Computed example of a mutant assay.
Amino acid sequence: MNKQPIGIFDSGYGGLTVFRSILDTLPGYDYIYFGDNARAPYGNRSFQTIHQYTKECVEWLFKQGCPLVILACNTASAKALRTIQQRDLQEIGPDRRVLGVIRPTAEVIGNYTKSGQIGVLGTKGTVQSESYLKEIEHFFPDIQVYQQACPLWVPLIENGEYDKPGADYFVKQYLDQILAQSAEIDTLLLACTHYPLLQEKIKAHLPQGMNVVAQGDIVAKSLADYLHRHPEIESRLSKSGDLSFYTTTDDTADFDHHASLFFGEAVRSEYVSMK
């Protein structure tokens, strides 16, 4: 039988935190992880560029046999997912499906707050798209949502500085800015899949009792529910427990080192050129 894995895409390493949760929740399936590290980060790029890059990577995953692709990247979910779902799939894969991380998070984030006020921490691209404002309002119209772009967090994380003392200044800087918007915020959403690696430092600079919500388990539970509700997709997925990792950077050793930190176990990748 030809492999028909679940494809998981991110612009870099962050999607591996989501992949870890998906694998823990849904073991036994075949998976392909694809990181577009050579063109990362996506957070400060234009809508057109993010859409083009994401579409190219989705097409590549389709060519590997994936009937289902998860955009484990908030920036790609915010700026490319809708166009891919509503326009591109008709051409590149009418029998395939592409899902993101924003909607499943928005469906449940309101359950974490008691004050009715949430702060969203994300990349510049995610914040500017206002995707979380719109999606959370759809599911929880009475909740007030504040946003803060944290453009230096991804470079800190991808350069291995996330657990160093120097990162504290930049963590506190953005937390102070989001909390200054409202004294009633009691829940912070980490709306970038890289940010869980900063979670300990983030919590250290927050008032006691503040909720800090990462997306991995949320997305994993949502995917399990999706597969239960869509047996026509689930039945196509191959189940031999095979994990494959690919990256667009030609320095696969460097990718493997960083990826292992995000994924929680050793990773061995192969290089893919998108030129």
Rank of each mutant, 00 (worst) to 15 (best):
205 H>R: 07
118 I>F: 02
109 I>T: 14
184 E>K: 11
95 D>W: 15
200 E>K: 15
210 M>H: 07
187 T>F: 09
112 Y>P: 00
227 L>A: 13
211 N>L: 04
188 L>H: 11
215 Q>Y: 07
188 L>S: 09
198 L>F: 12
108 V>C: 03
165 P>T: 03
101 V>Q: 08
183 A>N: 12
116 G>L: 07
226 Y>R: 12
131 S>L: 01
220 A>K: 11
171 V>F: 11
143 I>T: 11
181 Q>E: 09
182 S>D: 06
217 D>P: 00
113 T>D: 10
105 T>M: 04
128 Q>H: 12
191 A>R: 06
174 Y>C: 10
172 K>D: 10
191 A>G: 10
226 Y>C: 12
210 M>Q: 13
137 E>Q: 11
91 E>P: 03
134 K>S: 05
120 V>A: 06
190 L>H: 02
146 Y>A: 02
109 I>G: 07
91 E>V: 14
159 N>E: 13
188 L>F: 13
213 V>Y: 03
200 E>A: 12
132 Y>W: 05
92 I>L: 05
227 L>F: 04
226 Y>P: 13
169 Y>R: 06
134 K>R: 07
163 D>V: 02
198 L>G: 04
218 I>A: 07
106 A>F: 14
124 K>N: 05
130 E>K: 13
92 I>R: 06
124 K>V: 11
209 G>H: 14
223 L>F: 13
160 G>F: 08
208 Q>G: 00
91 E>S: 11
141 P>I: 02
101 V>P: 04
146 Y>W: 06
